[in-house]
Design a protein around this nucleic acid. Structure first.
Length: 451
RNA sequence: GGCUGCGUAGCAAAGCGGUUAUGCAGUGGCCUGCAAAGCCAUCUAGAGCGGUUCGACUCCGCUCGCAGCCUCCA
């Protein structure tokens, strides 16, 4: 029985989909004005793993992850670059897809874009005005009147009286209440804009998700996810907009993943302390990043450091080493490990425990070299998006000097047969200096891997 | 000021009211010409103070420390 932590109730709940056997899942994706950093990678990997596991449980999942391709930052960045905003977002959408692909993240079923959903956005705003939740401000912008929505704050545990307006941003005098937020923003000269009854403008930050989510998954769906920092105001506002416009409950279960941190501080663009996925990929294999992300529970903080990534390399090396030279037969799965794996994942997607099951499997596999255990290991790991490479590929890496290495290994085997230990050790040391580690087998053959 | 979380061994990271988490590192052994890998054994825990309990790392309270949110943010 799958249990998932619901931010709305602050507790783990037994997961019951609205329609038996089917799950609608919406995740807030990127605002595309720059490359994805490790924090974005966490969202992609976590919800990819959630989707894989839901499918493993035989749910028919509709996974929607949007792209926000119009907002102030995009406009600002495009101006800085002197390029059309659409060219900018196209570029970074492509880059995002490359990063996603590298990290073994399966594409979502739908990837709606804000700029392709303008009609739906306008329709929702009209509905909100009609139902009395929205008004036209003194500057012509359309605002959401938070006081009109009785449950405002139910997700983030805030109430309007406690919120300190103007904490970080100047109070906008065009609003009736400082907490009101923009639904439709009037365009300044030369800004990208779309026609509406309120004039040429563009959608505010939160409305695009309400429109795209209800459009793709219906007014009421099962799971909505995203980073913890979206809880307030973004997700709170999504609830206010969607429930205000439709009169129906928006989402049953809210999932929020924790932050990636650097030196006990949140990795973020504004702090400038971020590493992009492509930067990290220059140093580490993609699977290392994925393992690193899954080695901590999705709601816990994840501390980014060179050491953590090296730990991930060690862990993966151990698992792949166990898989080396064992036949994978697509048949029998060891039930005991399968059950332990499920138990871990059923407990709010506890990937660290699921990984520990894989390590227990690896130990047993090292002892017995049983094909059934190897099959089980690879099978279970597939739902984490791990261990799907050929073991030697992972351990040796793709290189062009493999032939030279093999030649030296053969020379060493000859030396060993002649009991010329000095030469044998010299060859081994030379290879070690190139980070090539040799491992002799009892049958006289020698294997190698890259350190 | 309001609201969330968190504090576990050398490092990373989980579950659990009483029984080995797991990975890396360390130590001892087996294996090996010697190594490496692997296997076996083993040492380091639960911020502090109270309370509940036969028994608490696990539940409750307080204190201290850390992180996050309060319209940039995944």
């Amino acid at each position: 029985m799958l249990k998932i932590y619901n931010t709305l109730t602050r507790s783990k709940e037994t997961f019951t989909p609205r329609v038996a056997g089917k799950v609608g899942l919406y995740v807030c994706g990127m605002t595309v004005y720059d490359y994805c950093h490790v924090g974005h990678a966490r969202v992609m990997v976590v919800f990819d793993t959630v989707t894989r596991y839901l499918r493993y449980l035989d749910y028919e999942v509709t996974y929607v992850r949007n792209i926000t391709d119009i907002d102030d930052k995009i406009i600002h960045r495009a101006n800085e670059n002197g390029e059309d905003f659409y060219a900018l977002t196209e570029r970074f959408i492509d880059a995002m897809h490359e990063d996603e692909h590298a990290l073994f993240v399966l594409p979502p079923d739908h990837e709606p874009r804000a700029t392709s959903s303008i009609a739906e956005i306008i329709a929702m705003i009209e509905k909100l005005i009609e139902r009395g939740f929205a008004y036209i401000g003194k500057n012509g912008d359309v605002f959401y009147a938070v006081e009109k929505f009785k449950d405002y704050g139910k997700l983030s545990g805030k109430n309007l009286d406690d919120l300190q307006a103007g904490e970080r941003v100047d109070i906008d005098l065009a609003k009736r209440n400082p907490m009101d937020f923009v639904l439709w923003k009037m365009a300044k000269a030369y800004e990208p804009s779309w026609q509406s009854t309120w004039g040429n403008g563009r959608p505010g930050w939160h409305i695009e998700c309400s429109a795209m989510a209800t459009c793709c998954l219906g007014n009421h769906f099962d799971i909505h996810g995203g980073g913890m920092d979206l809880q307030f105001p973004h997700h709170e506002n999504e609830i206010a907009q969607s429930e205000g416009a439709t009169g129906e409950k928006f989402v049953n279960l809210w999932m929020h993943n924790g932050f990636v941190r650097i030196n006990e501080e949140k990795m973020s663009k504004s702090l400038g302390n971020f590493f992009t996925v492509r930067e990290v990929l220059k140093e580490y294999r993609p699977e290392v990043i994925r393992y690193f992300i899954l080695s901590s529970h999705y709601r816990s903080p994840l501390n980014y450091s060179d050491e953590s990534l090296k730990d991930a390399v060690s862990g993966l090396t151990r698992l792949y080493t166990a898989l080396r030279d064992v036949e994978i037969i697509q048949s029998d799965i060891e039930v005991e490990y399968k059950q332990r794996f499920e138990q871990a994942m059923n407990d709010d997607f506890n990937t660290p425990v699921a990984l520990s099951v894989l390590f227990d499997l690896a130990r047993e596999l090292n002892k017995t070299k049983s094909p059934a255990l190897a099959t089980t290991l690879k099978y279970l790991a597939s739902f984490l998006g791990l261990l799907q490479e050929n073991a030697d590929n992972f351990l040796q890496g793709e290189t062009d000097d493999n032939a030279a290495i093999e030649t030296q290994i053969q020379a060493r085997i000859d030396a060993k047969l002649a009991k010329n230990w000095a030469l044998a050790d010299q060859i081994r040391d030379e290879l070690k200096a190139q980070n090539i580690i040799l491992e002799d087998s009892p049958d006289g053959t020698t294997r190698w891997r890259r350190e």
